[in-house]
């Protein structure tokens, strides 16, 4: 039973993790994109649509990634090239995403989906208690872990990662050093969009293989919370996503066992937990200062 609970938690956590890790890179470059929900729902509808039309869930995944990235570039164009306010533009992107996905999705309502199958690794997946959890999962689960490791390595152990962080920390001096701030931010935004698209595809191809309007149901917002919750550290995003998953699955189990707390309070737990952890983390001023991209949300216009 423990193992299947773990797998349930992983399924709940993976889409949050994928979307959050993308947004982490975006924010590390100094851009705040509040449009995660909109990009995710676009990924969900394209992933589903392409998968059912072609019969190949992998093509669906690919399309979701591309559409997520393309959609995010709309945000990029406005905020980076036209220096519009990032908060407002991100919110508008969500609005647009929910609308457009609904229009595209009208054709797919009530259609059974195609599910991305699981991949079991022989021998390893038979380890008691954790084998199936770690080694017999859907392919996007593995990808999510690889993404975290890759982003962590990229940010802290490569020159390009250092450059990206420097753009987020101080775009003026980065520019003075000859770094192309805007180009790097475009790349980061597109990566974030691609991840959000992939996270959306996870919803419509793995989690619940079907298309329902607004099926992201606020998960994009939670992904945004996770990034700050993790104080912009990739492995902490992973921990945060699984913690969030564990709390939300845990409250369902508590109900089945018969713990009689009003379910509204149980549902509110993850949000309150996020606030508490945020406070605990931020009490350590030095730690937050080191990790917070200093230019987050600030527009950059190169002087000529």
């Amino acid at each position: 039973m423990l193992e299947s609970v773990l797998i349930t938690i992983a399924t709940a956590a993976t889409p949050l993790l994928i979307a959050a890790i993308g947004e982490l890179v975006v924010e590390r470059s100094g851009v705040l994109n509040l449009g995660v929900e909109g990009m995710m729902v676009m990924g969900a509808v394209t992933g589903f649509g392409v998968a059912v039309t072609t019969g190949s869930p992998w093509l669906g995944v690919l399309a979701a990634i591309l559409v997520g990235a393309a959609f995010s570039l709309l945000f990029g164009f406005l905020t980076l090239s036209l220096v519009t306010n990032q908060v407002a533009t991100g919110l508008a992107l969500t609005l647009l995403g929910l609308g457009v996905s609904g229009m595209i999705g009208e054709a797919f309502i009530g259609m059974p989906g195609v599910k991305l199958g699981t991949i079991s690794i022989p021998v390893l997946s038979e380890i008691p208690y954790v084998g199936r959890f770690l080694f017999a999962q859907d392919p996007l689960f593995y990808i999510s872990i690889v993404l975290v490791a890759g982003v962590s390595y990229f940010l802290f152990f490569t020159r390009a990662g250092l450059t990206l962080r420097s753009v987020g920390d101080n775009h003026d001096s980065a520019h003075a050093l000859g770094i192309r701030v805007i180009a790097i931010r475009y790349a980061a935004v597109a990566f974030g969009g691609a991840c959000a698209g992939l996270a959306g595809a996870y919803l419509s191809l793995v989690y619940t293989p079907q298309w329902i309007e607004n099926m992201t149901a606020g998960r994009g917002w939670i992904a945004l919370a996770l990034v700050v919750f993790a104080s912009w550290r990739p492995w902490r995003v992973l921990a945060g996503a699984y913690l969030f998953g564990a709390v939300s699955i845990g409250q369902l189990h508590a109900q089945v066992i018969g713990v009689s707390i009003p379910s509204q309070f149980l549902t509110a737990l993850p949000y309150l937990a996020t606030v508490v952890v945020l406070v605990l983390i931020s009490r350590n001023r030095r730690l937050t200062m080191v990790n917070t991209p200093a230019c987050l949300g600030r527009p950059f216009v190169p002087a000529r």
Binding site: M1, S4, V5, T8, T11, A12, P15, L203, Y207, T208, Q210, I212, M215, A217, R219, S248, I249, L252, H253, Q255, V256, I257, S263, Q264, T267
Partner: peptide, 20 residues
């Protein structure tokens, strides 16, 4: 589940019940 339609949450609830 405190929702009329959130496919993900409904799936989670179903899994929790089955695990119990």
């Amino acid at each position: 589940a405190n929702t009329w339609f959130d496919a993900g949450k409904e799936a989670d609830a179903a899994k929790a019940l089955l695990d119990q």
